[in-house]
Simulated scan of single mutants.
Amino acid sequence: MTVALREVNQKILGYVSLTFLGYFTIGLSLATLPIFIHQTLGFNTIIAGLVISIQYIATFLLRGYAGKIVDTKGPKVSVLRSMLFFAMSGILLLLVFLFKSQPFISLGLLLITRLLTGIGEGMVGASPINWALMELGDEHAAKAISFNGIASYGALAIGAPLGVLMVNHISYEALGVLTIVVGIFGYVYCRSKTPYRIVRKRTEKISFKRVLVLVAPFGICLALGGLGFGSISTFMTLYYEHFDWQNGASCLTVFGIFFILTRLVFNKVIDQYGGLKVALLSLFVESLGLLLIATVINPIWTLLGAALTGLGFSLVFPALGVEAIKRVDQSQQGSALAAYGLFIDISLGITGPLIGFVANNMGMGAIYPFSSIMVAIGFAVVGNLIYTKRKALI
């Protein structure tokens, strides 16, 4: 049993390592681009937030296409294409920094770069999860989703501070070069993996739109929870700059550490207590963390708030994701995970301009009270889902 469990973990890790490579390229520029756009190029916070969010819009548009590829051609095809887009985004990112003395040209190139990055994210997305489920079976869904999240947010937690260090001690251009290298390495590594695909018995075929409707209740809750992460990942470095604090990227690292630790320590609670109950508690803790950042204006307490936010947000995606895929047949799981992932794309896509608008009109201090309220609404919606489910069973 122990050997079998070890083999399962190794196989899942082998697939989600592809997620790590993809999100590492995203993380490299995550903490540096808002400052680059605002301070080096001279554009305001709304523009900075909008440019960052272009990535999530592209990811949103690619989710359905990626899900269809996974269900028809297998996840390997989707992941290979994603790595090519990450490599291309690195080439353009290099040009962005080379043209930094010409702000509008640099910004235009950056918009295209973010689109390519978003396409790469959309293609890699849930593909490694589906790859694992096709080989190991649906009983490992919670673990596969959790490990994939550890890979993605762990990559962001490592990539963001590394990107800041590279900018401070080497150059902006070094970020572009490293992004190219990681994208190419990911492509070669993915090609070495067996395109394993289980032939599943198909039942009645349903459209992606119908799948989207089926998973929407869980996706809406995910989107509201995602606003908390988005406000930290996109605006925390500017928040630190506003108060003349140092090491704003450290918040992303602290968030990532607690995010990963929570998934490692509590990886069985979803199977034990159910996705909705776990999501309810998680959103409460996330909202509490954001409220702490909002009310105690101090860098140490802000780090503590980021830790609570990471702890809370950690299990939201897998908890609600397990509930979402129960709504569809096995042959539609690629589409279901893609549809479910759309909601985090929507969340992160609107977070940039929305939080940028709040910051621009109400001040930086309004960012985290607003984010806390949004996550609290998500908590209330999950509570309503639990109530509705219990009422239906009576």
Rank of each mutant, 00 (worst) to 15 (best):
G49A: 08
S17A: 08
I105Y: 03
E204I: 06
G289S: 02
V164A: 15
L315V: 02
E173W: 04
L30S: 11
M364W: 06
L227K: 04
M362D: 14
L290T: 07
L238D: 03
I158M: 14
E204W: 11
Q102A: 08
R81D: 01
I158C: 03
L107W: 09
W301E: 00
T113P: 04
K326M: 05
S106N: 07
A141N: 13
F259V: 00
Q39L: 08
T25K: 12
P103T: 13
F99N: 05
D71R: 00
L264C: 13
L94C: 02
I26N: 10
G289D: 00
Y153S: 12
G183N: 08
M364P: 00
V79H: 01
R6M: 13
L50W: 04
S101Q: 14
I12V: 07
L95R: 15
Y189T: 14
G378L: 13
M88Y: 05
K100Y: 02
F284E: 00
Q330W: 13
L5I: 11
L115T: 06
F317Y: 13
S372W: 03
K389G: 03
G312C: 11
K100S: 02
L28A: 12
S101D: 12
R197V: 10
Q330R: 14
R263W: 03
Q55W: 09
L393T: 01
H169V: 04
H140M: 06
K76D: 07
Y368A: 07
P318K: 12
A338L: 08
A294I: 06
I145A: 12
A307N: 01
F218Q: 08
A157E: 06
M123R: 06
A376I: 12
Y153L: 10
